[in-house]
Amino acid sequence: MDEVYLFVTKKILFNLVSRPVAWFDRHIVDGFMNLIARVIERSAYMIKGFQSGRIQQYGYVFVSGTIVLVIIFIYIW
């Protein structure tokens, strides 16, 4: 009977249920939350170059944006 008890608790409950649950929680559930944080961090890193402080660059973006809008309004609208 002792062997059965030990098999059920140690082998099944601890090793086959509890251990995968703990692993799943740390790596999959929590890992997904950390992934969201990392994606936000990466995208912030990627777009931070847009704010360069260089007036010429802002000027190019401004002018090209205006041209795109004008084209849209005249030909497509």
Partner: peptide, 10 residues
């Protein structure tokens, strides 16, 4: 159930 099983392995 998950919280309880998670606690065993800690």
């Amino acid at each position: 159930v998950y919280g309880a099983f998670g606690a065993i392995w800690q």
